[in-house]
Nucleic acid binder design. Sequence first.
DNA 1: GGTATTTCGTATGTATGTTAAACTAAATAT
DNA 2: ATATTTAGTTTAACATACATACGAAATACC
Lengths: 392, 392
Amino acid sequence: MYRTVDASVMRQVNKQTVLSLIYQKSVTSRVAISDETGLNRATVSSLVDELIAEEFVEEIGLGNSTGGRKPILLRFNARAGYAVGIDVQITHVTSVLTNAARDVIHYQRLELEADHGHYTTDWLLGILRQEIQSVTAAMPASPHGVLGVGIALPGLVNHIAGHVIYLPNLGLTDWAIVDDLSRWFPYPFVVDNDANCGAWSEYLARRVNNLVFLNAGVGVGSGIIINGALYRGRDGIAGESGHTTIATNGLICSCGNYGCWEEYASERALARYLREFGVEANVSPHFLSDSVRQAQSGDSAYRQAFQKLGEYLGIGLSNLLQVLNPEVAYLGGTVAEAQPLVFSDIQRVIRHRSMGANKETSIVIAEPTAVALGAAGLAISQTVKMLPVPTT
Amino acid sequence: MYRTVDASVMRQVNKQTVLSLIYQKSVTSRVAISDETGLNRATVSSLVDELIAEEFVEEIGLGNSTGGRKPILLRFNARAGYAVGIDVQITHVTSVLTNAARDVIHYQRLELEADHGHYTTDWLLGILRQEIQSVTAAMPASPHGVLGVGIALPGLVNHIAGHVIYLPNLGLTDWAIVDDLSRWFPYPFVVDNDANCGAWSEYLARRVNNLVFLNAGVGVGSGIIINGALYRGRDGIAGESGHTTIATNGLICSCGNYGCWEEYASERALARYLREFGVEANVSPHFLSDSVRQAQSGDSAYRQAFQKLGEYLGIGLSNLLQVLNPEVAYLGGTVAEAQPLVFSDIQRVIRHRSMGANKETSIVIAEPTAVALGAAGLAISQTVKMLPVPTT
DNA sequence: GGTATTTCGTATGTATGTTAAACTAAATAT
DNA sequence: ATATTTAGTTTAACATACATACGAAATACC
């Protein structure tokens, strides 16, 4: 409840500051850390010594002198441990193995049967087990081993309890997923919403303190970073921007509401636009990439459908910018693959619909692995307590 | 940049914790503080002694014993100093004088000429000077005197520089308001957006860590509290929810965009609905309260217009809930006066359009003085550094 | 009524941790 | 060769919270 500070908290905070700094920089030195943080050089020395003893930091030789003793270069020990990140989407599962510095060591993608029909927790548990097994097989030996396994899911998740609340596209509810996985593996597990994972990934990579990560695929959701921490809201369901109204009397949505953004800016929306232009279209594992190819080969129905998608992405993004005034907005999910076809329309609509400084907000396309990487990053952050903490 | 902790920061944080606790509680004691915070009793004693010396805390006698020595009761010294809060709206100006505990000592309201036409900074400066003068005349003597003057403005404000960026309804831009006021008074000044002030007021009153304050009057804006601090975004313009799209091809808004929420859920919108129902109507100082009276006297055009207003308030509020998942949403501004006429429609729409737990978010009607009180609260928080800080 | 017990608050000594300053180490500059 | 500069360590001083003991002042109980 009340946060008080004693000597040990003081040291912990300072140690976290030092490790975070080393984590961000590729290389640095004790004096450089002292200069940047304002901590006394003696304090930095003592903290760094501890971090070296814990094998989270390593000395990698001497740097260049500028007229005096050469600094001992310090680096975050990327090989301190490894983490697994798994991004579960309705059409495919992306898994990564990263080292502690979040470099991707191994990547794999599994297509899911589009017509599988009904999904069960057992079925998904089996897939996750297999993914964890095959990904960790690629892991080298290390002092800390598996720092954690992060799982990104498309829907509502109680990240504290490690429970699935509701995954609309998979039709799964109330599942103690972390408990089930813990029966099979001795690793620390983390589950979170996919957009939250994406947001955390971008935060760790660029340290933008206030950002929005839009995950647009079959559905649309967003992750929000505020003051360098994930913002989850009262019930952990903040960022459900896919189900905000952008057309008061618009199309009915799967959630029962009318005019939800998701109905206008998702893969499902793209398929509908295509049908409106006379093209037979339905969401499937390669639907989006196939459509991008069609559009790029010059098919005008496809081009127009993507243009419409871009405009609606712009409308909803503009709404997010107006409410949150973030430093950067990231566009991730499968829709990000359509960047060349939608980006200019997104930008145009934002410039038209946003006010003042929001017009200039940079919109950045995220890598396809962002969500899986973020899940791994969450797992690392949770285990290595001295790195940035996702929740305040 | 980097937050480090030494002994003095440690003490400062703990002192802030102690004073914040005393500020919230009506009365408490040293041991109770120790129990609640976990701080050692000796530490609490020492911190409380300092706070008493600074006259921010006072001992008010002995409490009841439960079988031992009676506790010395402690209380925040409400008479430590006073603060002024001024809420500037297009139709009226509300000013309050509060003591350090934010009890209202004096209140006054000034109607503004609706047909004044063109507003100037000199004109507004004159009004503010007069308000400050007459409000501080009611101020008793105190150890800290005027802790600060807070001014809430309807529009974009750079609260750090103390500059007005743009007040759309008043047509004022680029005004170093704090500099101008500082030439006339030796008080610490704070300016902020009106909705931010309202949000801060509700936070101080109830300590809800994540909330949204909707200020709906002639225009619509919102203030956002996240993790117990005002969230302002990159450029200090977060919360411009009045200019989010709720109707893609809707009415043109003063901002140039189409389908802004503000065009559907403000006093201007109410006037339009009334005209649609055949009633001659325009925004003026008493337009809203007059309309409420008309509706309550049974006029069906007015009732229907308010119902429509309620529905659209619900749509936009639902969007805010979906994105921010706050603990509570507060409805302030003049539109709050219409509570009996709009509340059930707001609730109904939210229950229909929001997902899961957001359906149950409590919507609370704010007092008409909330914004002015919040401006005073910001001024106090800025001066008395040991109270909750509005920005992290 | 006297004594034990409980609770509040303070005084004292200790532990922890940061800082300042002196010092050592090791480089470059002259 | 010597002076100067920069990196990192050692040492003593200082600040602060904490544990413990203690005194103050009430209630509970015989």
